[in-house]
Design a protein around this nucleic acid. Structure first.
Lengths: 202, 202
DNA sequence: GTCTATACCACGATAGAC
DNA sequence: GTCTATCGTGGTATAGAC
């Protein structure tokens, strides 16, 4: 075999990122030590520093990747529902955000749970990409408002914060091993659009 | 003055709890050191250990107090709306939970943000009280379902998780200094009951 | 009840061999 | 690219004077 093996050159690096993100998600950034991360990967703590300059650097890469997963999912949902009715477009984007949280590694869930208390310089670096993701949602909701899908008196800003907050909060209780992601997406879409009130008693 | 001064004997202790809860809220439990907490109080780190056995002990007391604040607020809302219509009762309890988060010290907000990654033995100690608070909400929502305020096909379990999750997630963006708590409560109540959908286009 | 002094340990990170 | 060995720091916590 003289043909080069199709090895992914970042395999070792990605392995570290996977384990680190999982531990940051479960224990929090400060509580997860570099030694413990290295143990999970199966190497010595010092070896981590061949791939990353610092523990903060590790977190920064993970937070960026979490946002990248969300953003790609959002864009995919957008192209997949280009001419579709407003309610379907919203449903697809909700489903996409939840898929980012539960189906593409721990990066997005880790982002969502660790960003608020991350070291300030790390947060500062992440903010622009984060603003860009939120702007995507603002644009989507504004479109739905303009096209009459949402009530005219909808405050788009708070609505976006509530919707994203509610989805992200599901990491506290939703277990993708036990529940169906489609069911969760359907539930959130329905509750967001129509609420819990009994329409017969309005 | 031979009459005893009405001093609160736990003032020093409460002072420590206040500063510790604030720092746990802002930086997370692990990142906030005992030395830093002591500095905020204006004493030496060693003095903290006259009032608490350990840093974990400090966290445990704070988490318990956070739940106590929530529970008292819930019960007050219950007695205040005893004979009231279902929608008003729901509105009052939503407002009460948000008041616990933003108006009675940092305890409830700290509980909500640090419980998930708290050391396991601490979490275990807290769980029963936490379950009791969630049971209060389950009972309330079941009442509203039985009395026809909520759609008959409402899944009370997920509805409770979504509602509490959405309210708790507001700690990431709501600033009680800048926004009105009544407005927030009204917004969440309205969105929970009726959703964002334009009723004219249903 | 608060202080000074300090024990002891785990942390992030580096040096340098292989 | 991973290892062993180690450095320096800051962490929780304790001892004992005042």
């Amino acid at each position: 075999m003289t043909i080069a093996e199709p090895t992914v050159e970042t395999a070792g690096r990605d392995r570290i990122l996977d384990e680190a993100a999982s531990l940051f998600l479960k224990q929090g950034y400060e509580a997860a030590s570099v030694r413990r991360i290295a143990e999970a990967v199966g190497m010595q703590a010092a070896s981590i520093y061949h791939h990353f300059n610092s523990k903060e650097d590790l977190l920064e890469v993970i937070l960026h990747r979490g946002l990248e997963v969300m953003t790609v999912a959002f864009d995919d949902a957008s192209t997949a529902t280009l001419g579709a009715p407003g309610r379907e477009r919203l449903a697809a984007h909700i489903r996409a955000h939840l898929a980012a949280l539960y189906e593409n590694g721990p990066y997005t869930a880790t982002h969502v749970t660790t960003f608020r208390t991350a070291p300030e310089n790390v947060r500062t670096t992440i903010v622009p990409q984060r603003d860009a993701y939120e702007a995507l949602w603002t644009t989507l909701l504004n479109d739905l408002l303009t096209s009459g899908v949402l009530t005219p008196d909808t405050a788009v800003g708070p609505a976006r914060l509530m919707l994203l907050g509610g989805m992200n909060a599901s990491v506290e209780w939703f277990d993708p091993q036990r529940g169906s992601l489609d069911d969760l997406a359907h539930l959130i879409t329905r509750q967001t659009l129509y609420g819990l009130s009994n329409p017969l008693k309005n």
